[in-house]
C-alpha cells in the first residue's frame, strides 16, 4: 500500500487535518464511495500490534493511518488499546458543522486491566453521521445511506521521549522552526541587554 497511487513531486507529505480525515477519507470509506487518493488501507485492528503497522498502514512522518472496523474490544496479540479518559473530542468543519469525534487510546501490553502502558498512542476517528447528513451539500453529493457505524479511521504514533509532547502530532518541522541561534539573533535585534544565554 502506501502512497503509491499518488504521483507528486518531492516534498509532499500526507499531513491531513482532522477535517480532511473525517470528511474526505472516512466519509468516502463509510459511504462506499471511491476515494481519491486511495492511500489508506484497511487493517484488522485485532491482528496488529502497533509496532507491526510499518509496511501495512499508510506511513507518513511518524504517523500510521489505517481504516478498521468499529469495535469496542480492541485486543491485539500482545496487548490492548485502552481508551484514555478524555472526553471524546468533536471534529468540526471550517463551517462549524460537527462531522465526527475522535477518541484517544494508549496501547497496553498484557491483559486488561493490568496491562502496562506503552508510548504507542492512537486517535480513533468516528463519523458523526448526523452532522454530515444534516449538511445539504454532502447530502446532495454523497450517498445518503451512510453506514457510519462500520468504519473508523485510526492514526497511530509512538510518543518519543518525555511526556511533555503529549498528544502533539506535529512532526519535527524541518525548517519552519527557528533554530536556537536564529531565536537569539531575533531577540538581540530588539534589545541587547535583556537576554542571557542559558547555563
Amino acid at each position: 500500500m502506501g502512497d503509491g497511487s499518488v504521483n507528486l513531486p518531492p516534498g509532499f507529505q500526507f499531513h491531513p487535518t482532522d477535517e480532511e480525515l473525517v470528511v474526505h477519507f472516512l466519509y468516502c470509506k463509510a459511504s462506499l464511495l471511491p476515494c481519491h487518493p486511495d492511500v489508506i488501507p484497511d487493517l484488522d485492528l485485532h491482528l496488529q500490534d502497533p509496532w507491526q503497522l510499518n509496511g501495512k498502514a499508510l506511513s507518513s512522518g511518524n504517523q500510521w493511518y489505517f481504516f478498521s472496523r468499529v469495535t469496542e474490544n480492541r485486543v491485539t496479540k500482545n496487548g490492548y488499546w485502552k481508551k484514555l479518559d478524555n472526553i471524546d473530542e468533536p471534529i468540526f468543519t471550517s463551517a462549524s458543522t460537527k462531522v465526527g469525534i475522535k477518541k484517544y487510546l494508549v496501547f497496553c501490553i498484557g491483559e486488561a486491566p493490568a496491562g502496562i502502558e506503552t508510548n504507542w498512542l492512537m486517535e480513533e476517528y468516528h463519523l458523526s453521521s448526523r452532522g454530515l447528513l444534516s449538511n445539504t451539500s454532502y447530502k446532495r453529493r454523497r450517498n445518503p445511506k451512510l453506514d457510519s457505524s462500520q468504519w473508523v479511521l485510526c492514526r497511530v504514533h509512538e510518543r518519543k521521549g518525555d511526556s511533555r509532547q503529549g498528544l502533539c502530532y506535529d512532526d519535527d518541522d524541518d525548517g519552519t522552526e527557528l533554530s536556537c541561534l536564529d531565536e537569539m539573533f531575533l531577540s538581540l535585534d530588539d534589545d541587547y541587554d535583556e537576554i542571557s544565554l542559558p547555563n
Binding site: P10, G11, F14, H15, E20, H24, P37, G175
Partner: peptide
C-alpha cells in the same frame, strides 16, 4: 494536489531538487 497532502519539503529537497 489531493486532499491531505501538504507540501513540506526538507531543506535538502528545496536545494537539491527544486
Amino acid at each position: 494536489v489531493p486532499p491531505g497532502f501538504r507540501f513540506h519539503p526538507t531543506e535538502e529537497e528545496l536545494l537539491h531538487y527544486y
